[in-house]
Design a protein around this nucleic acid. Structure first.
Length: 233
DNA sequence: GCGACAG
DNA sequence: ATCTTGTCGC
């Protein structure tokens, strides 16, 4: 009855080869929860990663911004920097960004109640985008809010903010093509982990105060590219 | 074989 | 993602 020593959750392994990464994703996808399962949501964190510090490549700088979900005021920020090992491969983005992203989130003074990522959730070939993977790895409700499509088909959503059309992969709805702001390209919202699509859309709209990107992600994106105290040079 | 392809 | 100037529009 001796139990395996390295039962290290498959979804917490980042030092893998591209082929192993695909195997990990299949495990993660099976553990993702697509319905609402969370207590009170008081805070939300946005995370994003930027690369190539001062022209050089190979460095990942991740930023996490914690906001009050009601007022959307900033409560805390965290920035970390480390070498980027895994290359960018469509479908395997998580393995390139996760180490830095997790470090940035761990750097926040408290765990957020919800996580919004700059990328897909289950709107992924294997239903395992970065938002879903991070949500499971950190055991946090999460939402994927990508600026462009990875897979699936859709019709152009209504022009008014709040309008959306289903993102489909065959007959399966994997996300929503959402107009968060008039006259701008729509966002691709999808379930990350423990948050239904309907709730995800509502939360993203709540966080998108007249802007194309929801505040958590917008601020994290800005911070990762322009750190206040240059972690750059 | 020929495209498509989160960040 | 990143490399880059000016420019159109609210």
């Amino acid at each position: 009855m001796a139990q395996a020593p390295d039962v290290a959750a498959a979804w917490c392994r980042w030092d893998v080869t591209p082929k192993e990464a695909v195997a990990v994703q299949r495990q993660v996808a099976a553990a993702i929860e697509r319905t609402d399962r969370f207590a009170a949501l008081r805070t939300v964190a946005g995370v994003d990663v930027a690369y190539g510090v001062r022209g050089r490549g190979g460095i990942a700088r991740a930023a996490a911004v914690l906001l009050d979900l009601t007022t959307l005021s900033v409560l805390a920020e965290s920035v970390v920097q480390m070498p980027a090992t895994f290359p960018y491969v469509p479908g395997l983005l998580t393995f390139r960004e996760a180490p830095a992203a997790i470090a940035a989130i761990d750097g926040l003074p408290m765990r957020p109640d919800l996580l919004i990522c700059d990328g897909q959730g289950i709107a992924h070939p294997r239903r395992c985008g970065v938002a879903s993977h991070l949500g499971l790895a950190l055991d946090l409700p999460s939402i994927g809010a990508a600026k462009s499509r990875l897979c699936g088909t859709h019709l152009d959503p209504p022009a008014e903010p709040g309008g959306w059309t289903p993102l489909l992969d065959g007959d399966e709805m994997i996300g929503a093509c959402l107009r968060t702001r008039a006259a701008t390209r729509p966002l691709f919202i999808s379930i990350g982990h423990r948050v239904s699509l309907a709730t995800a859309v509502a939360l993203v709209l709540h966080c998108s105060k007249g802007r194309r990107l929801p505040e958590p992600t917008r601020l994290a994106d800005r911070l990762s590219k322009h750190p206040k105290r240059p972690e750059s040079r």
